[in-house]
């Protein structure tokens, strides 16, 4: 009889992440002749994003997708994709992934998880409520921070980090409680924040990655043939995901500019400021990351 696996995703059904894993689920079902039936639950219906990793660890769900960098409190290595300006294009992000994959797989295995593949998000850019031609223009603006790293980024930019939960973001932007934020553009589009934050700076700060992982006991219980089939499909889904993210990067820009957002390339002074912040935050990260993190970053930099 068929093995039914629940597959929670934090993103709504029409988001490319949920679309990608639905495609993955269909392929797996087909390849295994229905023996492995993955049921996608979008929009955090089964478990909210933050809970998905733990739910898969404990077999409440058997497979899941979530951004690992949300769990960097557990291990700093999970946050390696979100170190500012370390890997800021799709190519570099893919290289960083190749370098870090073995270490991440090992770390996940210790937590009873099998890492399958990753899907990148479009590069993170900065949204402002006004035009920013030099770093001074951003001084004192209220910046929505969602973790320690983004709060630090705001401080280094001379902005005031403000903590706003996702559910309250549109009210906060509408009332000027938030004057700037960093995002891939997707949330800005989904929450329709373009009226309030009409200036986008293509900073390409980093690429957030979503990861697909399976409960390890479930994984080990599959026969080798099925495992190989799933791995093959993962590879295809990963390539599809990267392609989708690249297309989305362009679509988002055109969609946002249709809604009246001006898309800027950061002026030279701003670019220099970003570089300075990047260097500083990379140093700070390396200090915390220990030998393993330092080795991985060195290995990655050597390939540049």
């Amino acid at each position: 009889h068929a093995d039914v696996w629940d597959f929670p995703s934090p993103q709504p059904a029409n988001n490319y992440i949920s679309e990608n894993i639905s495609w993955f689920a269909d392929q797996v079902r087909e390849a295994t002749g229905g023996e492995l039936d993955l049921r996608v639950h979008p929009s955090g219906t089964l478990f909210p994003g933050d809970q998905i990793k733990r739910a898969v660890q404990r077999d409440q769900a058997q497979i899941g997708v979530h951004v690992l960098s949300a769990h960097q409190n557990e291990s700093i290595l999970f946050g390696i994709d979100s170190v500012p300006f370390l890997a800021n294009s799709f190519e570099e992000s893919a290289q960083l992934w190749e370098v870090t994959k073995p270490a991440l797989t090992e770390l996940m295995a210790e937590q009873n998880l099998q890492l399958l593949y990753h899907i990148p998000w479009p590069p993170q850019g900065l949204f402002f409520d006004r035009e920013i031609s030099s770093p001074e223009d951003a001084d004192g603006l209220k910046f929505r921070a969602y973790n320690t790293a983004t709060a630090r980024f705001a401080e280094l930019m001379g902005m005031t980090p403000t903590l706003i939960e996702e559910a309250e973001i549109s009210q906060a932007a509408a009332t000027g409680m938030v004057q700037s934020l960093i995002s891939s553009g997707d949330p800005v589009y989904n929450h329709q924040l373009w009226d309030y934050l009409p200036h986008f700076y293509d900073a390409q700060a980093w690429l957030v990655l979503s990861h697909v992982f399976v409960n390890k006991e479930r994984w080990d219980a599959l026969d080798e043939e099925t495992q190989q089939a799933v791995l093959d499909i993962s590879l295809q889904a990963e390539q599809r995901g990267e392609q989708q993210a690249k297309e989305l990067t362009e679509t988002l820009k055109s969609q946002l500019s249709e809604k009246g957002v001006s898309i800027h390339q950061p002026a030279e002074k701003l670019r220099e400021e970003f570089d300075r912040i990047g260097e500083e935050m990379q140093e700070e990260w390396l200090e915390k990351a220990g030998d393993q993190g330092r080795q991985l970053v060195e290995e990655y930099r050597a390939q540049q």
Binding site: P12, N14, S43, E166, A167, S170, Q171, A174, N190, H191, Q192
Partner: peptide, 11 residues
Amino acid sequence: VYGVITNQSIP
């Protein structure tokens, strides 16, 4: 909740 699931503007 509805707005976030269906991509509708919350305001």
